[in-house]
Amino acid sequence: MALLDIRNLRVEFRTAQGLFPAVDGIDLTVDEGELLGVVGESGSGKSVTMLALMGLLPWTANVTADRMEFAGRDMLSIPPRERRRLTGAEMAMIFQEPMSSLNPCFTVGFQLTEAIKVHQGGTRRQRRDQAAELLQQVGIPSAASRLSAFPHQLSGGMNQRVMIAMAIACNPKLLIADEPTTALDVTIQAQILDLLVQLQRERGMALILITHDMAVVAETARRVNVMYAGQQVETRPVDSLFDNPRHPYTAALLDALPERASGKTRLPTIPGVVPGIADRPGGCLFHPRCRFAQQRCKTNRPELESDRDGRVRCFFPLDRGEPTDWPEDAESRGSAA
């Protein structure tokens, strides 16, 4: 049985302009010890999905789902007290901005031991030893002396390591890393990613790695979930996704990788932005930015269909960069381009 099983998750935000569906029918399964990559541009609902699972959304959010189970427990009807016992212990999360994610008024040691204290108890001495050991495990030099440091005395990379130490303190079954390297500089990014993957292997925990960087996914994940405007557009194993992307959006993301653009004078981009509350299109949500959009894409919304080794949400999924099942008549084709 899957560790995490989410069916048809919807998250709507109450805004001044009405309900905005930030997450629009997401299915997500993660097995124990699996490393799942979730990619998509800013605003595609990646973080919101995870925050909904963790119960960290603000009160303006309305979360519904057909099923949301973690380790056999129903996360939709779970009482708050039960949920608190799980969050931080069995499922943990680290965030994008390490500098602001740690409380500036408390020492690193306090914040680390606090997580241990709430879920495991133990004596002050034990907690302190454990905290020092955790800092060492996440690669912080002279760990014991860093316990009394305040977050502002450490670098961003160090703070993110502290966040990771805090998240793994209680041996979670699932760790969610929400763009853990976005705010860090490039050399540190690789170190943090390596650390996450190493911890995931050593501890056999499941890891959901949220990112908008396809290159990061290629290096780490085994399965990839591509999201766009609150919907899943494609999910499949990382090798076949990179080898033969079927959704035009996935293909476009891959084309935008500098490594793959060799020989071209200009790096390909995807025109436009992810639709917001005011400009959410009818039909396929990606059609205004899709090179291959047809008349049908403007009027009908495609479902997430199983194909080969994954699932894709497209009427005319690509095969080796060419759309399949295109309509024969030139009229409905020509009007779209």
Binding site: R84, L86, T87, G88, A92, F95, S101, E114, V118
Partner: peptide, 21 residues
């Protein structure tokens, strides 16, 4: 603030999040 979200992600009881963090 982000650190309040972190405190909630740690599974801390509400009084501790509000009254301390």
């Amino acid at each position: 603030e982000d650190y309040v979200r972190t405190a909630r992600a740690k599974g801390l009881p509400p009084w501790r999040i509000v009254g301390l963090h």
